[in-house]
Design a protein around this nucleic acid. Sequence first.
DNA 1: CATTCTATTGACACTTGTTCAATAACGCCA
DNA 2: TGGCGTTATTGAACAAGTGTCAATAGAATG
Lengths: 221, 221
Amino acid sequence: MGCVTATTGRGSGTRAPGNRAPRNRLSPDERRSQLLDLGVRLLATRSLDELSIDLLAEEAGISRGLLYHYFGNKHAFHEAVVRRAADDLIAQTAPPVTGDPIERLLASVTAYVDYVVANYEGYLSLVKGAAGGNEAIRQIYDDARNALTDRIFREDAQGQIIEDTPAARLLMRGWGAMTEDLVLSWLVDPTGVTREELLAMMAQSLPALGSILPQPSVVEH
Amino acid sequence: MGCVTATTGRGSGTRAPGNRAPRNRLSPDERRSQLLDLGVRLLATRSLDELSIDLLAEEAGISRGLLYHYFGNKHAFHEAVVRRAADDLIAQTAPPVTGDPIERLLASVTAYVDYVVANYEGYLSLVKGAAGGNEAIRQIYDDARNALTDRIFREDAQGQIIEDTPAARLLMRGWGAMTEDLVLSWLVDPTGVTREELLAMMAQSLPALGSILPQPSVVEH
DNA sequence: CATTCTATTGACACTTGTTCAATAACGCCA
DNA sequence: TGGCGTTATTGAACAAGTGTCAATAGAATG
């Protein structure tokens, strides 16, 4: 019993039998880049275990083996994809260096929002990867967010908005989480809030939060 | 060629050959409850695909088949675990009904923080599940968080802190995200911030954010 | 045109989720 | 107490996906 014909037939996609697709030979850099881009796109809507190597390979027009040749295993591929998305985010949101602190903060926030709008897929890969992934991936995500907020903390709003204490660091982190949630929620349903209102909300919330810091005082009522 | 002896030998754990563990027959409710509790615990530190049915079954002292009998498949089990964690959260953070709005807000926030501290594992299951999981699971998570924030919005701080507009809703959601990040970050590294400072930070941040809402006005500088 | 190099493949082995007929513990009634 | 139906539980077979590696084919080089 058992030992059915196995049917390991991992069909080579939708191709007439006998005329297999010609090999498409690229340089390692090109291939790597192609696969990472594809990964970013595919992992924006699926979680890692919803993305099979089969689908990925077919979508890329390569064999499964090639993916292992480049990335070793599925999780390493995921990690590379997340790292690519994170690097991209950091690079494309370089802060301005002119204007007063408030203006620069607004500019930073604007760059961030514009990036997320323009690269929704890539940003989702990053966020979703961080949440579902292992420790290494979460680290990449944390580093990226720290880089973003530290940039605002040090360069754009140095000392003028909030000072540097453990409580301030914590609150700053919280502000980052809020900011991320604001963009993503707004993108899902933007009704009733314009882009400018969103930007103002994000920029103004930081000094507003900073105001509760120095010596905590209850709000008037 | 193929058809090796298959060796499907999914060893029944660490048990001497021949003396299998006696069946432990529970009522469906008890068994379900046991499995959900275990799931909450195990999924606090692993992601779903890092948790094999094998491990789960062994840890619970049951066969793999039984899990399928109760939950159908792995994802349905995950969903049930997340739902249990969410229900638990809602139930155990019932808000107080006395005091002025600010006091009630502080009490709500305190109940939330205390719950997370006391049920760290369960809360992590919820958060991690929501991030890595499918749409249904994310829905459960969103509903739970909306229930929490709506409670504060309607009952604890009705109209007295912020009014009800799309922008306010959005900001409220963002505040929720910030609050969650604050607790979890603080738990990871509490140095420099006391529990009371954290609570004050969370409670005061809501009116502080509300102050930027009505007609956006740039902060003084 | 022959040869070397290497990007790429495809079949195979292995792990793990899923199904289902068989089994054994429990309550019930004679 | 002992047979009997009910049903919680099991284990082996099945399916689908991941990871491995020797063989292959496209390009560059002489």
